[in-house]
Design a binder for these strands. Structure first.
Length: 329
DNA sequence: CGGCTTTGACCAGCGC
DNA sequence: GCGCTGGTCAAAGCCG
């Protein structure tokens, strides 16, 4: 168990807020600076961050923007999503979107979240994080093995387990565990085609050259996979310097400046707690962010709770790209 | 050659 | 106490 990258002891005992804060105290990258333009925030916020509750002067170690997403933050963001989905209908989408707030299932102590993902034969998925597989086990009463992954980001202690559903062959069950709540990451960043707040990522073919993915020869999924990889491939490639949407924002500030405050680990990957505050403070962005093309069921799994609260929506496309899942397939 | 995956072994928790 | 089960370790192999 005692791996070299094992987090400090207090990770296991401190509260989520404390842990997040501790992380952010020293290493929080500063993506956004007042006075700069942030086109990725959308037209409503073009101009300066002062319009979105940013102090006039930000010490780079000041964490006003990144006090850390609590579960309430995420819940709030998802709640906003529910409202925002109404905009989707206004845009002409006939989908019936159902977003029921997670009211009971969230468990601060355990921080375990389970995603049921319709993979529809797509063997490759990506939630924007790079995971290192550290184990695989056959599970009793399940024909499919379970794979264990750790987040390779040294700032992050998150883990996830991935297994195929025994009931539905095309459904993957991904259980996220850990401080950084990776489960929600993809919900915020997955919808690049309408992510007006991350325009640089909307034009990946110009900004990000997409390598052909030999692991995904399925041309039938090409469009979806393009969206997927262009959003997240940089996160998975340690040598790239645009780890995620938020970091792309940092890039807008000037790579040197941002990177010098990021630390190399963040160059490789953005963390959810780094971005959630943005969504919480900018709920309008979620209207775009959540009109994505996933079929997703999210449920928390507190050990002592029988409730299965969920966040779910039923978009047209069955494809989902959460998790580096090929290990179990 | 370094990083990643695979896979059997080991360990801890839990129920009986 | 014992066995079962899930989670993790770590050596070996693979791959780019």
């Amino acid at each position: 168990m005692a791996a070299a990258e094992e987090p400090p002891a207090n990770w296991a005992s401190g509260s989520e807020d404390e842990l997040v804060r501790e992380l952010l105290d020293d290493e929080t990258p500063l993506f956004l600076l007042p006075g700069d333009d942030y086109p990725f925030l959308g037209s409503e916020y073009s101009g300066s961050l002062s319009t979105i509750d940013v102090p006039p002067a930000i010490n780079r170690s000041t964490l006003n923007l990144y006090s850390g997403p609590t579960l309430e933050d995420i819940e709030s963001a998802l709640s906003t999503t529910k409202q925002s989905l109404g905009l989707t209908e206004e845009l002409g989408t006939s989908r019936t979107s159902t977003v029921s707030l997670i009211e009971k299932g969230f468990n601060k102590v355990d921080n375990k979240y389970t995603l049921k993902i319709k993979s529809s034969g797509s063997t490759m998925a990506d939630d924007g994080y790079k995971w290192r597989k550290y184990g695989q086990k056959s599970i009793k009463n399940s024909p499919n093995p379970r794979s264990y992954y750790r987040c390779t980001n040294p700032r992050c202690s998150a883990k996830k387990q991935v297994e195929k559903s025994k009931d539905e062959a095309d459904t993957l069950i991904v259980t996220y565990e850990g401080l950084h709540l990776h489960f929600a990451y993809s919900h915020f960043l997955r919808s690049r085609p309408v992510m007006s707040f991350v325009p640089e990522l909307i034009q990946p073919k110009k900004r990000l050259k997409l390598p052909s993915d030999p692991a995904n020869p399925d041309q039938g999924h090409q469009e979806v996979l393009q969206i997927t990889t262009s959003t997240t491939s940089t996160c998975r490639d340690d040598h790239e310097e645009e780890p995620a949407a938020v970091v792309a924002g940092a890039g807008e500030l000037g790579a040197e400046d941002a990177v010098s405050n990021m630390g190399t680990s963040f160059q490789a990957q953005g963390l959810l707690e780094d971005i959630v505050p943005l969504f919480v403070r900018n709920p309008l962005n979620l209207s775009a962010a959540l009109s994505n093309n996933e079929t997703c069921l999210l449920s928390s799994s507190p050990p002592s709770s029988s409730s299965t609260s969920s966040v779910c929506w039923s978009p047209p496309s069955p494809y989902v790209d959460v998790g580096i899942l090929s290990g179990i397939l």
